[in-house]
Write a protein that binds this DNA or RNA. Structure first.
Lengths: 231, 231
DNA sequence: AACAAAATATGACATTTATCATTTTTTTAT
DNA sequence: ATAAAAAAATGATAAATGTCATATTTTGTT
């Protein structure tokens, strides 16, 4: 990715809270930002880390995870290009409570804490955007809690597959445009890897999905939607 | 409760985001606020409702629930006096996504939307407090997701009992100072009511808790803490 | 106090899910 | 291209949890 990239001409920021800030602030951020390239499996920051700034995802997809006491990792959320990560920690002035790991090659811009906090204080529109983003995240998280608690594994898997297609889209052959291991899917829906594998096979046998290695294509979305609610 | 209560002398607001605002704003809010009294089981607002303001909890405890597609209710969170509810909806300018129901007699102050939004725009400290509250809630919600996903019902029950005592405290006989039906406990941890009843009996037989009607006393907290992690 | 309604408790059983073992397939590194 | 490692698949079985039926106890009402 271009080493001389600058924020002024970056269209990605239109997708997040940075979209609304005036040009002098942007040029400031542009001077201080540090572009970073990460490969699949690499960690952007870890649970417990003291963040020095936020990260703007220019490209790629990542997972946000939390380590459970039993040593298993829980995927709490998936994030794609355009979004910010780390703002929760910066705003609440605390350590990171999630680990962010790249699911594919990513280009990320690091933006120092001080720039974000200054902007947050002086620019009402920016702080409102950040607050709204947190409100949306909270809302999604509450829905997740209800899903986890009320649905069984089969229902959660059907739901997740539909969700993956919705947020990641499909490639030119119609497969969901993200590569997840069975273990990662299991870590997202909160079940054993073997259970995920078995249920995927079931869905395949039922003709609802097509599996090709790690690639998944949704064939019968109406049926999957029904499975979501236990039919 | 006193009909002529005013916000200026209300110590409750020290506990939430309203604690930091100047006296002229407080007196404004004081003029517009509407004190409301609700009894156990009464709903303050419902999922889907278009809120006209936020509610400041002066007294009592309530549950925040979400209706699952299968018709079961999921308790997403418990809230006690001192906290605000409804700010998420007001900030994101959307409908309520949760239902708030009193668990006991409550005194609540309704504060009109406009006052909150004005304050949010003109008072940086207030908006920062609100944002931090959302960040904290988000963090707690993420932990809930991980708990729901990674722990089994027994572990979640042990965890919830410890949590209830932590947030609600105990009465003068040492019982957890909140009255929940077995069904409500089940709705919080995401299991069938019968499973909750059975596990509570188990815990009682094991000598970890004492049951007296709906009242629960924690007897062996160290042991419960271990149960939390599967011992 | 007596009754009805709701909540709690318990048993029997079905279903779901986890765990462990093993094989097959895919991916990665050399 | 091949070996080694990782991931996926499958079977067997145990454990956890849900569901339904029914009995008992508690709570609320008149």
């Amino acid at each position: 990715m271009d080493m001389h990239h600058n924020c002024e001409s970056c269209i990605i920021r239109e997708l997040n809270s940075l979209g609304s800030i005036p040009s002098e602030d942007i040029s400031n951020i542009s001077k201080h930002k540090i572009p970073i390239h990460v490969k699949r499996g690499e960690v952007i920051f870890s649970e417990g880390a003291s963040l020095k700034g936020v990260y703007c995802l220019r490209n790629g997809k990542c997972k946000l995870t939390k380590l459970a006491p039993n040593g298993k990792e829980q995927i709490v959320r998936f994030i794609s290009k355009g979004e910010l990560v780390g703002h929760r920690s910066i705003i609440s002035n605390s350590v990171a409570h999630l680990t962010v790991t790249a699911l594919e090659e990513m280009d990320v811009c690091f933006i120092p804490k001080q720039d974000i906090l200054e902007l947050f204080k002086k620019n009402t529109e920016f702080s409102l955007q950040i607050t709204k983003a947190l409100a949306r995240d909270l809302d999604d998280a509450n829905s997740s809690i209800a899903n986890m608690a009320q649905k069984n594994v089969r229902e959660r898997l059907a739901e997740s597959l539909l969700f993956f297609e919705k947020i990641f889209g499909v490639d030119n052959e119609g497969y969901i445009a993200v590569t997840l291991t069975r273990e990662e899917i299991a870590n997202a829906i909160g079940t054993a890897t073997e259970s995920t594998i078995r249920l995927l096979s079931d869905f395949k046998k039922g003709g609802y999905i097509i599996l090709s290695g790690k690639k998944i294509k949704l064939k019968e979305k109406v049926k999957l939607q029904q499975l979501t609610e236990g039919y």
